[in-house]
Each structure stands twice: as structure tokens, then as C-alpha cells.
Design a binder for these strands. Structure first.
Length: 479
RNA sequence: CGGGGCGUAGCGCAGCCCGGUAGCGCGCACCGUUCGGGUCGGUGAGGUCAUGGGUUCGAAUCCCGUCGCCCCGACCA
């Protein structure tokens, strides 16, 4: 059933990526460098991501709230690692209302600090815990180098912030949210992500431990697609988030934070796209089926439109997102247009289908004639729904096979370098210092993407230091 | 900030070397034609040639300065 997708011409993958993003109408360039205008079609994909995540957050007892865009500069400074990590990329407001401000305001790069300050006031007793809050917001990070969706100066995301009574609860929460991200990525975005833990060097500024889901793009580069942090008591201590326990003892809370951003839109483009353009995962696609009527003469038009409208009504009734393309263009033009935009299924009805009471379903994941099939008009809902699921499975399968065939084990540094140079991911036993980790990055451009959670067990020898190693690391070049 | 490159119509570019008053493709508008895989033909609208100065009878073109943008690297969801 699965057909291998056309590989994007990776001699210049980022050029391909930019072209798709703009041609498929996901985004437009903004007047300010590094910012991006998200156009309606791109925004609808983001809304799909939002809905998928929000549903899961609600199901696990989280509530949405909203915190201010501006954060007093002094808040950032309360957690030493945090400010060190973020200060190079802050946008700061020093003048407002025509006056120099007494204290500069930082445009939030993330909200641990201001939410921590709020939590310290909200939490008094163990009865107030756990406190499970999420916010949908924009944040600003003045990055040196930007790319639409993957890294923009301003981006949209959700950031969850929770406070717990015990270390165990906080760790459970951290892992639960990581699982939710992975479940979403795999079952809705059809992106097979690897769950893992970040190294000391790569972890979030101020966190105890950072967990991540890592995805492989079509150029074999890694993309961190979501993170979940166990903040330990670092922020609780910096912001005085304390509670009175059952036995009347004052304790610091254990907090977590976790986020997924509009970068996910870029991940979908880069994980599934092919030479024809986007291939959207059916469960997230704003348009799941595009209906294209085909007729030559006016007397053909009416019966064709009647037939197609009837099918559209049935599909919509069943909850399928259908768009009718009745533009005055040639069919070939429309086919290419919607293929560029990645619509999973194209439904065609023409004069020849009328007598046979048939319709054509063309699937986006399999290009050309092979992806076309004739189906009876009766039972169109089942045919379409079945096909949408099949397309999802196929995209996931293709991406999984692609990923697995590009992860290689390395036992020596030479092997390692060879794997990285060819663009693949290197899987290695790891027991070496931070300095050695940095050295590998300097020499090869690859970083530890994560220590995968499903470790093989046993022990091995570190390819770099020769030390006995208990854990495995995945190295790759990343976005 | 280091290394490359580029600023000419909405977008992509040619013209510059060798100065003579601006052109192509796409897109856009209108007419006809076509429509089961990006139809074809015609007509038309649209430009301070990034910017300041200099050389010259004359500068998109040559010279000097300034500004902006893109790509590669360092930073990162």
C-alpha cells in the first residue's frame, strides 16, 4: 500500500522549504526582519495543532489562562541560569508613553518568571496543589538567524506551567506532557518522534531536566518539536513559591513547564513535503478533500454540479472538511494548485462519472495515476474516511522508514563523522564530559539531540572517551 | 560580528564589462479559445533602475560614500 514519496531536491532543501511555505500560502514576509505573517491557510494548520493539544490538556485537568506580555526586567534576573540563557535574545522596552521607564520591560521570551511570581501568591496550602495552568501566547526571541515557522523572532505557542507538592509528582507531570506531545505528533501530525532527555548542555535555562521529542526532517536534519521541563525547585526558590504541608511545614513547590510552538507547522512541511509541495497529514489538514467538478459545456455543468454538491453535503454531514473548487480554471491548474497546498484527497466528478455513478478519489501521498481510484458515489463517506486513515498511516510509515534507515550506530569517532557527514543520525554509547560534547559540536556540527527514553539496556563503550557507558545518545545536525 | 552575494515593474531576472534615455518571464486586466493533469493567441496597465555625491554633452551602466536585504557560521522552540 505504501509508496515511497518523491524526495525533495535536497541540494538546497532550505530553498525548497521557503518556496513551499510561500507558494502554498502558509506565510508571507513581514516588514520586520525575522518576523513572519501567518496567512489564513497556515493559521488553520496552527488551529488544528491548537485543538489537538488543547483537547489533551483539558482531558488531563489543565486550565487555560493568560499572563502579560511585558515582564519587569528584574524578574528575569531572579533565576541565575535563566537570565544567562535568555538575555542575549531579549527585546526590551525602555520608553513608553513618551517617557523613559524606571524599570525596563522585557517582552516575554517565555513566562516562567511572571507565572512563577503569580503562583507564589496563589499557592498557600497543599490543598492548592497541583496547580495546572496553560497559556496560549506569543513570545519574542531576538534570534540571530531566522526561518519561517522554524525560528522566527516572534512566534505563537502554548506554554504549560504547573506546581506540585512533591518531586515525584512534578516528574510524573513532566513525563505525562511529553507523552501527550508524542501522541499528538504521531497520531495527528503523522510525524514519528523520538522521546528523550536533553543533555546538560542542551537543557532549558533553569531546568533540572529537559525532555524532548525529536523529529527527522526530509533532509535528515533533526528538529526539536516540543519540550517538557522538570524545573525542580529552582524557580520555586527564586520566586518564593511555597506551600504549607499537611503537617504544617513550609515547603517549596516543584514546578514544570512545557511548550509546543508554531514551529510544528514547519515540522509538518519538512517531514512530509515532496517535490510537488506540501503533503498535509489528514487529521490536521484544514481541507481534507477538495472537490473538483469537470465539465466542458454548459449542459454538462448542471448535472455535474448537482452530483458533486450531493457528495459534498454527505461528506460535510459526516464531519469531513471539504472545499469545492469551482473556479473558472482548467482542471490541471486546480490539481497542481491543491497538490501544492497538500490537500490529502481530491474528489473529481465529470460527465463520464454521471452514468456510472462513480467518482474519482486521488490521494496526495501517492503522486500521479497510481494514486487515483474510481469509487461508487454511494458510500462515499466510508470511502473517503477510510482513505484519510490510510493516508495518515502511509505518511507515518514513510516517515518512520525514512527515519530508521538514516539512524546508524557508531563505535568509533571516524564512523561517527562519516555518518554525520552523510546527513544521518548517529546512535552511540555516551559517557563523556561536557567539554567533549562541545568539541564534537565544534568539529562535526552535530549535537546530542537526546538520550532516547527507550534505551537498549546493558552497557557499552563510549565511542569518544572509551569510558564504560550506561546510556545511548542520538547525535545529529539540527535546525 | 566574520566569510560570500545582491539591490532594475507585484514576484523572478537580463541589461552594466564596452555610457546614448529600460527589456524578458511569471503574475495582473480585458477579448476570444481551451477545459478528465499547469491550454493557446491577442490587446493592455504597471518602473524615483536602493540612496547621496562625482566624472561626462549624456549614467541603470564608470568612480567614491551611505543604507538595506539574502546566503553560510556563532545563538535557539
Amino acid at each position: 500500500m505504501a509508496s515511497q514519496a518523491v524526495t525533495p531536491q535536497s541540494e538546497d532543501f532550505s530553498k525548497w522549504y521557503n518556496e513551499i511555505v510561500y507558494k502554498a500560502d502558509l506565510a508571507a514576509q513581514s516588514p520586520v526582519r525575522g518576523c513572519v505573517i501567518i496567512k489564513p491557510y497556515g493559521y488553520e494548520i496552527w488551529e488544528g495543532i491548537r485543538n489537538g493539544l488543547d483537547r489533551r490538556f483539558k482531558a488531563t485537568g489543565h486550565q487555560n489562562a493568560y499572563f502579560p506580555l511585558f515582564i519587569p526586567e528584574s524578574y528575569l534576573k531572579r533565576e541565575a541560569q535563566h537570565v544567562e540563557g535568555f538575555s542575549p535574545e531579549l527585546a526590551v522596552v525602555t520608553i513608553a508613553g513618551g517617557k523613559e521607564l524606571e524599570e525596563p520591560l522585557v517582552v516575554r521570551p517565555t513566562s516562567e518568571t511572571i507565572i512563577g511570581e503569580a503562583f507564589s501568591q496563589w499557592i498557600q496550602s497543599y490543598r492548592d496543589l497541583p496547580l495546572l495552568i496553560n497559556q496560549w501566547a506569543n513570545v519574542v526571541r531576538w534570534e540571530l538567524r531566522t526561518r519561517p515557522f522554524l525560528r522566527t523572532t516572534e512566534f505563537l505557542w502554548q506554554e504549560g506551567h504547573t506546581a506540585h507538592a512533591t518531586e515525584t509528582e512534578a516528574e510524573d507531570e513532566t513525563m505525562q506532557m511529553l507523552d501527550i506531545y508524542a501522541d499528538f505528533a504521531i497520531n495527528e501530525a503523522a510525524i514519528p518522534v523520538i522521546k528523550g532527555q536533553k543533555s546538560e548542555i542542551e537543557k532549558f535555562a533553569g531546568a533540572l531536566r529537559t525532555y524532548t521529542i525529536e523529529a527527522m526532517m526530509r533532509d535528515k536534519k533533526a528538529l526539536q518539536s516540543g519540550t517538557s521541563h522538570n524545573l525542580g525547585q529552582n524557580f520555586a526558590k527564586a520566586f518564593d513559591i511555597k506551600y504549607l504541608s499537611k503537617d504544617n511545614a513550609e515547603e517549596h513547590c516543584w514546578t514544570t513547564s512545557w511548550g509546543m510552538s508554531t514551529r510544528m507547522v514547519g515540522a509538518i512541511v519538512m517531514a512530509h513535503g515532496d517535490d510537488q509541495g506540501l503533503r498535509l497529514p489528514p487529521r490536521l489538514a484544514p481541507i481534507q478533500v477538495v472537490a473538483v467538478p469537470i465539465y466542458r459545456k454548459d449542459d454538462e455543468r448542471v448535472p455535474v454540479m448537482d452530483a458533486i454538491n450531493k457528495l459534498i453535503a454527505e461528506l460535510r454531514e459526516a464531519g469531513v472538511r471539504v472545499h469545492l473548487d469551482d473556479r473558472d480554471e482548467t482542471p490541471g491548474f486546480k490539481y497542481n494548485d491543491w497538490e501544492m497546498r497538500g490537500v490529502p484527497i481530491r474528489l473529481e466528478i465529470g460527465p463520464k462519472d454521471l452514468q456510472k455513478e462513480s467518482a474519482v478519489l486521488a490521494r496526495r501521498d501517492i503522486p500521479g495515476r497510481e494514486g487515483k481510484q474510481f469509487v461508487p458515489q454511494t458510500g462515499i463517506v466510508d470511502s473517503v474516511k477510510g482513505l484519510l486513515d490510510e493516508i495518515h498511516e502511509n505518511l507515518l510509515k514513510q516517515a518512520t522508514e525514512f527515519r530508521d534507515s538514516n539512524i546508524h550506530d557508531a563505535t568509533t569517532y571516524d564512523e561517527f563523522k562519516q555518518i554525520i557527514e552523510s546527513g544521518g543520525w548517529a546512535r552511540v554509547w555516551w559517557a563523556a564530559s561536557n567539554e567533549e560534547e562541545v568539541r564534537v559540536k565544534d568539529e562535526t556540527g552535530a549535537t546530542i539531540r537526546c538520550f532516547p527514553l527507550d534505551q537498549p539496556g546493558g552497557t557499552g563503550t563510549c565511542f569518544l572517551s572509551g569510558n564504560d557507558a550506561e546510556r545511548v545518545a542520538l547525535f545529529a545536525k539540527a535546525y
